[in-house]
Structures are given as structure tokens and as C-alpha cells.
Amino acid sequence: MTREYKRVAYYPGCALEETGHAYNRSTKEVGKALGLELVELKNWNCCGAMEVKNIDPKVETYLSARNLAIAAEMGFEVVMAPCNGCYHNLKKAEYDLAADPATRESVDRLSQRAGHKTYESGSVATIHALDWLKAAIGEEGLRRRIRNSLAGLKIANYYGCMYTRPRHIFPEKDKGPGSESTAKPHFMDDLLAAAGATCVEYPLKTACCGGAHTLSDSDTSTRLVLNLLEGAEVCGADVIATECPTCHTGLEIHQVRAEKVFGRKTRVKILYFTQLLGMALGLSARRVGVHENFSDSSDLLKARRLG
């Protein structure tokens, strides 16, 4: 298990090339610092996201399956997707292709018309950046490599929706000790605790940030995010750790919007878990792209002598 994660295919997805670039950068830097190799998929395409699913679910499955087919063609058995949306869609494609003959037929037909090999279901396993670090390095391995402990930093770990729901597309979760839980995920808590942080009890860890309607129904999203931010503060957190570019950017946008539109200010900082891990591994704040976040957490990092 551990060895096959030393070198995996890497699917960054569209968001990580732009607004979520800090996540891309910090993921790669953490991998480098830990001696893990990421090989980016050649000529990948959008996973389909939620938007294409709403237009046509089978096209979404085709888009995700094309990426899985590329991973297989490059000789990989594992593809790592740090974005919750991409991760979710690749998992969903895997499930639908095995469970639904009509989807299988549509994807085969689309692949044939597009002139490339169709994806053979079950040939590539999709994992999240959390699965990757947890299995390839683990808490023990991480503890040994910590150079700048996060001791004293109180973190609310926020996983969002797409990492655990709906559960049927994640057959490896909820398998008892050691596996991830869909009701109360803990991989991010485990990793950041190993880096020395205090992970606060955060009941909203899988609540929704309204990312689907960040722009199309902004007031609803702002209300949902405000609840997450205020909830984290009530739980005593200094920072919300994220593992999805859509959630992360949504929290940043609506933290500002909540202040501007609803007059409700929150002070909790928002950082990718890979940025926190990277700084704990001794990387500078700039190396893990803290300056590329839309929100400013420099004062907290300075006060804590991080990065």
C-alpha cells in the first residue's frame, strides 16, 4: 500500500491551475519534501465538475473517464486528485461505469467518436491528497520529519461535501479502524495533529459551503459560509484547514462578502492543509503559496513564527 503511493499519477484539475494555485504549489512542495513523486497526467481535461453533470451526467462521466484512461495509458494504477470536485467525479465515474450499463455504453460511444481508447473500469484507483499522505507517509513518518511544529495552533478541519458524499461512490471508506469515515472524516485531523496542531472538535466539518452557487445564489452561499466561519470561531479555532479549492475560495470570498453585505466580520484564517503541513516540514510561507491565497493570514503566521 505504502510503496505504490511513492510515485503516483497527479491530476490537478482546472481550479488548481488558477484560483487554487496555492493548493497545487503546496501539494507539490509537500510531496517533494517527503520524497514522493507526482507525475502529472498528460493532456488532461476538466473532470466535468457539477456544472456539466447538471447539463448531462453521462458527459461528466465521459470527461472523468478520459482522465482515468490517460492514467492507465501512462502505466499508473493510482491517480491522486487533490481537488474534492475532481476526486469526487473520478470516483463517481468509476462507480457509474461498473454499476450502470447505460453509462458504460454512452462513455464507450463517446470515446470511440472522440477517437481514443475507452477506460476499462477498475484499472486505476483514484485517491485524494489526504489518502496519499496518510498512506505513503502516515502520522509516524510525518512526526519524524516535523521541523517547525504547529504546537499551539488550533485548527478546525473542514472537509466539505464531495469528499464523503454520497457514500456509495467511496467503497473503501467506513471500513473500520484505519479507514476514512464518511460521517466523521479524520484523515486531515490525523495528519495535522501529527504536525503538532491542536485539532478542535468541529461539528461542521462536512457541512456545505454552498460552493455550487457561489456566484449564482451568493446570499445563500454567504449564509452557509458565515455559519462555518462563526462555528469555527465558537469551537476556538485560529485557522480553518481546507482540502478543496472550491471550498477554500468560497470561504475566502464569502468571508469578505459576509462583512460587506451582512456586516458580520470573522477573524478565523483559511489555509490549505498542505500549506500548514509544508510549513511544519520547514518550508517557507512563500514556498507553499500563502501569498497566493485570496485571504491574508500573514499576521497569524508571523505571530506563530510559521513559514
Partner: peptide
């Protein structure tokens, strides 16, 4: 509705280029 318009803008870019630009 706005969400349908958003889905269309988004999907159109994916259909045209294979990727989106935020």
C-alpha cells in the same frame, strides 16, 4: 435561473476547450 445560466457558461467552455478558466 442563474444556476442554469452558470452551468451553461461553464459547460460551454469545457465543451469548447476541454478545460475551464475561472
Amino acid at each position: 435561473k442563474p444556476s442554469m445560466l452558470f452551468d451553461e457558461v461553464f459547460s460551454e467552455q469545457v465543451f469548447a476547450t476541454g478545460k475551464i478558466e475561472d
